[in-house]
Write a protein that binds this DNA or RNA. Structure first.
Length: 777
DNA sequence: GATATGTTTTTTTTT
DNA sequence: AAAACATATC
């Protein structure tokens, strides 16, 4: 295999050591993907049947790319690899074996929205306080449990978990868990976590199944091992039990999914569980320039929990990391957009070589606007995926019900969409009846006559609906996915409805459905996976299509039209990717590191690893930015620079930006207001001056604008309406004490008292009905 | 039962 | 600021 000549010594060893357990610790940009692809190709060249190789990746896109690269070396055989995400590979196996667990083999995969909707119904039926029992909170508890292989029964028996719930005032979670699981089971549905939990149950409860798959998979490979959780690790250990040819690739410094149960314990346990383990370290970075690699090392050495390793590079020189201090979130966006425009021209780059990375999805909006103003094409990844949009999900719900009518969540979505006179009252009756008889909702829809207390007209409408669904189901045998979908769109009047709506949103909805139908068509004519002789195939092509899209992420999009665009995504989503020029934005305390993760050292270290991942995405240019003011929930907040900026050594970074926050007189023009200024600040002379140190925005600074002034407070001894909303964290101006920040507010009614910290006199307690206060907006 | 209007909540990260 | 949610009105 001539490709082996391209590898350095440790890469070569990592590729060619194909017997026994292997762990590859791979630093960023160290050729990890290349090692994985060559290793798989090498296995195939050494007469390992691709059907015997299971390769688990983090995204479907990573799997697809790897498969493509492997097929360049070994040819079409690559299509037979069991390669994909944990969830998609396990779903494929579960589908073949589902009947053993009492699930239909065309089971539905519930997405998190479906799950929360199920929980919401249960919480409501149980008459629990929905302020305390929020679906998202309950779902998180259930999900975390499942990722530690704890089912509803074990949960109820687990003293720690139950007492946690009791002390948080939610003792009923264990019951909700059981009810939820039961409801999903009746609907023939698994959630994402079930794909792991049920996989584990399948292998542990049925020795013959375990034996079968242990025999089948002679070689197992796992990418991004640092981000696997307890459940995933346990399952892999079972699969690998026979041959023990298991190869894991990971980097503890890039572990960023602890919140989802991932643990680097897996890396440590691996050494313990496989004493024969051979470990290879890939430490040479081929991706980034020296400044970037040094900065990454600067950052990560602030973490205590690290495996020892030293990343180094031969790529000398390169530009320093630029740090922009900007006045506001909108300013930040404009400056970044201008810088992209300028950098592209100056260095002859393509738009696709740029990425803007942020901590939270909500940050994308301002960049979207700024890029649009400069006519820079962009694509936002993550956030609401295509398949989560209402109109798309409604349409897909039809397909789901056709494949699996017991899918209650889908059924509820479409039973009166488009409107067919089955209103909320009727739906509630249906659900109540289903629960009373302990039957799936669909059974009652099929036989509305068992419902008490319903008008015959309503029953007839329900009957009509069920007849329509059955007529769709009849098509499953003879028609392909596209034919069925198209027929449903026409028959239900759904396409017609959307077509009639000529509002901009309506047009976009119509286009989305067209796109969905095109996607289904592509799938239908596209290459279908091969199956082994003894393997259970999906019942039909619509079911196979649904399985595929239910596990697709937004990152998996590979449309040509997105190839030439600036990419916007969260840092989590950027894992495993690389770009010539990277902008990491919103580097502010409480945003990055997130305010949610400043409580424990472990959480903070994960944020730091996240920053490490972000930095190391960059090949040549790296730009960091932060804003001094930022809107959150429509409220202005003052921000200070992230500690992470300080952790980069001075010799690797250059500061740009204003010394003081914006003065009110300059409010209409920002510091880098127009193109003239943009050129100026990017010019060589300016770059040489390292003027600015990041300085905290002090609360003595003049406020940006004082649009709303609480004059009422001066008038008399009652709390003005503006001050009624006063809460901790707000900035105010006092007649005598000047600017201050609200520490806390106590008491009620006329006697509300605020504790306010004033720069001039320190903490003061002030009765609001007498306060001469203005809220700074 | 559908639509208009007001109120409350949301933001960590994702397969 | 926007979306989700709840309530009022036709």
């Amino acid at each position: 295999m001539r490709e082996l000549a391209e590898l350095n010594e440790s890469q070569f060893n990592a590729v060619t050591t194909i017997h026994g357990p292997v762990m590859i610790i791979a630093g960023p940009g160290s050729g990890k993907t290349r090692v994985l692809t060559y290793r798989i190709a090498y296995l195939i060249k050494n007469n390992v049947d691709p059907f015997r190789i299971m390769a688990l990746t983090f995204t479907n896109k990573a799997a697809a790319e790897m498969r493509e690269r492997i097929s360049h070396i070994v040819g079409h055989e690559a299509r037979n690899l069991y390669m994909g995400t944990f969830h998609s590979v396990f779903a494929r196996i579960l589908r073949a074996e589902a009947h053993r667990m009492g699930y239909p083999n065309n089971f539905t995969i519930y997405d998190p929205d479906d799950c929360k909707s199920v929980l919401k119904s249960i919480i409501k039926e149980e008459g629990l306080n929905d302020k305390l029992y929020k679906p998202a909170t309950v779902f998180y508890r259930i999900s975390s449990a499942k990722n530690s292989l704890i089912d509803a029964k074990k949960y109820a028996e687990n003293i720690d978990l139950v007492s946690d719930d009791e002390s948080s005032g939610r003792p009923k979670i264990k019951e909700l868990f059981a009810k939820y699981q039961d409801r999903c089971f009746k609907s023939g549905a698994m959630d994402f976590d079930d794909l792991l939990l049920k996989m584990y149950e399948l292998l542990t409860k049925f020795p013959d199944v375990l034996y079968k798959y242990q025999q089948r998979f002679t070689h197992i490979l796992i990418d991004e091992f640092q981000d696997t959780n307890n459940a995933q690790y346990s399952i892999v250990k079972l699969f690998a039990g026979q041959h023990e040819n298991v190869c894991v690739v990971g980097d503890d410094a890039q572990s960023i999914y602890a919140f989802r149960g991932a643990t680097i314990e897996n890396i440590l346990n691996f050494e313990r569980d496989y004493p024969d383990l051979k470990v290879f370290k890939l430490e040479q970075n081929y991706r980034s320039t020296e400044h970037i690699v040094s900065a990454a090392n600067d950052i990560i050495k602030h973490n205590k929990a690290q495996l020892p390793k030293q990343i180094w590079t031969d790529n000398k020189g390169g530009e320093k990391i630029k740090v922009y201090k900007t006045a506001s979130d909108t300013d930040e966006a404009r400056i970044v957009a201008n810088a992209i425009f300028d950098q592209k021209m100056r260095n002859h780059l393509m738009h696709s070589e740029f990425a803007i990375l942020y901590r939270t999805n909500a940050q994308s909006r301002s960049f979207e606007e700024a890029l649009r103003k400069l006519n820079i094409p962009y694509k936002i990844y993550g956030g609401l995926s295509f398949y989560q949009r209402k109109e798309v999900k409604d349409f897909i719900s039809y397909l789901r019900v056709v494949v699996n009518p017991n899918d209650e969540e889908a059924l509820k979505r479409i039973i009166n969409y488009p409107v067919r006179g089955i209103g909320n009252t009727s739906i509630d009756r249906l659900i109540v009846t289903a629960n009373e008889h302990d039957l799936p909702l669909w059974h009652v829809v099929e036989k509305p006559e068992i419902i008490n207390d319903m008008q015959s007209r309503a029953k007839q409408l329900i009957r009509d609906f069920s007849i329509m669904i059955k007529s769709f189901r009849a098509m499953l045998a003879g028609k392909n996915a596209y034919e069925i979908a198209e027929y449903i769109g026409k028959q239900t009047g759904l396409i017609q409805d959307l077509y009639k709506d000529k509002t901009p949103e309506g047009i976009s909805r119509f286009e989305n459905i067209q796109e969905l139908l095109n996607g289904i068509k592509e799938y239908t004519v596209g290459e279908q996976p091969e199956y082994e002789e003894d393997e259970v195939r999906p019942e039909n092509d619509l079911a196979a299509y649904l399985q595929q899209i239910s596990l697709l992420t937004d990152m998996d999009d590979s449309k040509d039209e997105n190839k030439e665009k600036v990419k916007l995504m969260t840092i989590h989503a950027a894992k495993g990717l690389e770009f010539t020029s990277v902008f990491i934005v919103g580097l502010e305390e409480n945003l990055f590191p997130s305010i949610m993760s400043m409580n424990t050292r472990e959480d903070l270290e994960e944020e730091r690893r996240l920053f490490y991942v972000a930095i190391t995405r960059s090949k040549r240019f790296l730009t960091l930015s932060y804003a001094l003011t930022r809107y959150k929930f429509g409220q202005l907040n003052y921000c200070e620079a992230s500690r992470f900026i300080d952790e980069i050594a001075e010799e690797n970074k250059t500061f740009f930006g204003q010394k003081e926050p914006q003065k009110p007189k300059a409010e209409q023009k920002s510091f880098f207001g127009d193109d003239e200024n943009t050129k100026w600040y990017l010019s060589k002379q300016y770059q040489k001056k390292q003027i600015i140190e990041p300085s905290k925005p002090e609360i003595t600074e003049p406020p940006k604008n004082l649009t709303k002034i609480n004059t009422a407070a001066k008038a008399g001894a009652s709390i003005s309406s503006d001050l009624k909303d006063l809460e901790a964290g707000m900035h105010v101006i006092h007649e005598k004490f000047n600017q201050g920040k609200v520490i806390s507010v106590e008491g009620g009614g006329e006697n509300r008292i605020a504790t306010i910290y004033f720069e001039t006199v320190g903490n003061k307690k002030i009765m609001l009905k007498f306060a001469k206060l203005q809220i700074v907006e």
